[in-house]
Nucleic acid binder design. Structure first.
Length: 328
DNA sequence: CAGTTCGGACGCTCAAATTG
DNA sequence: AATTTGAGCGTCCGAACTGA
């Protein structure tokens, strides 16, 4: 039996999306070149709200000279600053050059940096993970990561609660599908992948997991009005887990019943403050497995209440604002 | 012509990654 | 532990626009 799982979808426009946070592949050629400059621009550590809004030069004074000049001293106060996110995984840094490296070698490395990098080139299985899995399960078939950009370049639509949603192919992103076989069923799961840039986005709240597929912690979870998902990362990630094991994992992650009323009052939801969790008895639609994570996707109406407190017992879990992204 | 808007170049910070 | 890297997030330059 062949099941083709549709990709998940973007949020409607009225749902706040941190668009600026959307991942993009950055190669060395697209990075801003660091020029040696004669005169460094000096900037204040914190512009006042007026100068910030106007994108104009501010100074340390409160009121600053610009506000004084404009007669708006009374509103000249420091602009608020975001706190930097912690726990954000980053891609591998370039290796430092030994001092005696040749120009030719420099040139070669420079060329390599312009290529996007993919899992199969940049990630290795963890040895301890393989051992645990070999002890407990049959050795899995190797995954086939098939590049399939064509599929994702087509905009797809679905309708949910009378509203049309549009899929959002990720620009420049490499796309793969994972073929999984569980029992007599085989699954083709469309799956966005994934430069290390994408990974840091998807795994920004990763935790230190233990080398057992049954005791992995929830690394992160994402939700939209049409889907919810969460990831288990990364120790159990080198094989697809049987459905009953997945369900067990869900059960032991102390899920709470979804607040179905909330679903009907979406305009009242505080998305930024929400975590959304799957129902315990909701079947898994699909899952995808990569060298760094397992992701489980659930049917849409699994909106729930904030569950940060559910995870306080896990010391390493750092709650992060939920990101709303197309997730496969 | 002074003030406003805003795209994007540039700068700073600091956690992650790397080194020794 | 110390050092390096580089991405997130901030400032503000300068060109275009607006309106008196």
């Amino acid at each position: 039996m062949q099941k083709n799982i549709q990709p998940l979808y973007t949020l409607p426009s009225q749902v706040p999306i941190a668009a600026a946070d959307m991942p993009t592949i950055i190669t060395s050629s697209t990075k801003r070149s660091k020029k040696v400059k004669e005169s460094k621009r000096r900037q204040v550590k914190n512009a006042c709200i007026n100068c910030q809004k106007a994108c104009k030069k501010c100074d340390e004074g409160r009121a600053c000279q610009r506000c004084i000049k404009l007669g708006i001293e009374s509103t000249c106060v420091d602009s608020p600053r975001k706190e930097r996110l912690r726990g954000v995984k980053r891609g591998p840094y370039k290796k430092r050059q030994p001092k005696n490296v040749t120009n030719a070698a420099n040139q070669l490395q420079s060329n390599d940096q312009d290529k996007p990098f993919y899992f199969d080139q940049d990630f290795k299985w963890l040895d301890n993970t393989q051992i645990v899995n070999q002890q407990q399960y049959q050795q899995p078939q190797p995954f086939k990561y098939e590049q399939n950009s064509q599929q994702f370049n087509q905009i797809q639509y679905t309708t949910y609660q009378g509203q049309q949603y549009e899929s959002q192919p990720q620009q420049e992103s490499a796309c793969f599908s994972t073929d999984l076989t569980i029992g007599n069923d085989s699954y083709t799961t469309p799956y966005y992948s994934s430069s290390p840039i994408d990974q840091q986005f998807y795994q920004q709240s990763s935790v230190n997991s233990t080398p057992s597929p049954l005791t992995n912690s929830v690394a992160d979870h994402y939700a939209s009005p049409v889907s919810s998902s969460f990831s288990i990362s990364p120790a159990s990630s080198n094989m697809p887990l049987p459905q009953d094991v997945l369900q067990s994992m869900i059960a032991i992650n102390d899920l709470i019943p979804a607040d179905m009323d909330a679903l009907t009052k979406q305009e009242d939801l505080d998305f930024d403050g929400m975590m959304m969790m799957p129902l315990l008895d909701t079947p898994i639609l699909n899952w995808s497995t990569t060298p760094t994570s397992n992701t489980f996707n659930f049917a849409a109406p699994n909106l729930a209440q904030p569950v940060y407190h559910q995870y306080q017992q896990q010391e390493d879990y750092i709650p992060q604002p939920t990101q709303y992204i197309p997730f496969c």
